[in-house]
Amino acid sequence: MPHVTVYPGTQNRPVYQVGGKSFVFFRNPRPDAFDPDTGERYDDVIVLWVPSEGDKLALVQDESSPFFTTPHFDGHLSVLIRARHLGEISYDELAEVVQEAWLSRASPRRQAAWLSAHLPDGGS
């Protein structure tokens, strides 16, 4: 995706931004995302922005999907996925989720330019 900068977040976990706005980041282990059997905090959670609450619900309510959320992210337009579960989705699905994350955070000018260059109808 164009105009992306990568910053080392806390504990050197990358934060991907467009126009100074995060759209994907690798989260530090937190108490709200943990193994229900051991209580161990997940250390491989990736946060991806989504365009709308409907998009979020579509991803997290699908029982076959590895995407999830926690109460900490209620009202936040993002979904979570563990890195170890990325293989459960196709490359195309992952690319679409990352593109949607980027589009949800990019400026309208950057969105329009990217859509015009990548969609057959120019995004309309």
Results as ranks from 00 to 15, higher is better:
His72Ala: 08
Val6Ala: 09
Gly54Trp: 08
Thr69Val: 13
Arg109Gln: 13
Gln11Ile: 03
Val47Trp: 08
Pro31Arg: 12
Asp35Asn: 15
Arg84Leu: 03
Glu53Trp: 02
Ile89Met: 13
Ser124Leu: 11
Pro8Leu: 06
Asn12Val: 01
Phe67His: 09
Ser22Ala: 15
Asp32Tyr: 09
Gly54Asp: 10
Thr10Ser: 05
Arg110Trp: 14
Trp102His: 14
Thr38Lys: 09
Pro36Phe: 02
Gln61Trp: 09
Lys21His: 14
Ser107Phe: 07
Ser65Asn: 11
Glu88Arg: 15
Gly75Phe: 02
Trp114Gln: 06
Leu115Cys: 10
Ser22Pro: 11
Pro29Thr: 11
Val15Gly: 03
Arg82Tyr: 02
Leu94Arg: 12
Gly54Thr: 13
Gly122Pro: 07
Tyr42Thr: 00
Glu63Cys: 03
Gly39Met: 08
Leu119Trp: 08
Pro31Lys: 12
Asn12Pro: 04
Ile89Gln: 10
Gln11Leu: 13
Gly122Cys: 13
Arg13Cys: 11
Val79Ile: 15
Phe23Ile: 09
Leu57Ala: 14
Val15Asp: 12
Arg105Ser: 14
Gln99Ile: 04
Ile81Gly: 03
Val24Pro: 01
Ser78Trp: 01
Leu48Met: 15
Val4Phe: 02
Gly19Leu: 11
Ser22Gln: 12
Tyr16Val: 05
Ser90Ala: 06
Pro29Gly: 05
Gln99Tyr: 01
Val6Arg: 08
Leu86Tyr: 06
Arg82Asn: 02
Val15Tyr: 05
Ser22Met: 15
Val45Tyr: 04
Gly87Ile: 04
Thr70Val: 13
Glu63Gln: 14
Phe23His: 12
Met1Ile: 08
Asp44Ser: 02
Phe67Asn: 05
Phe68Cys: 03
Arg84Val: 08
Ala95Pro: 05
Ser90Tyr: 09
Glu53Ala: 14
Ile89Trp: 10
Ala58Pro: 00
Lys21Thr: 14
Arg13Gln: 12
Val24Phe: 08
Phe73Val: 00
Asp35Glu: 03
Tyr42Asp: 03
Ala58Val: 03
His3Pro: 00
Phe25Val: 00
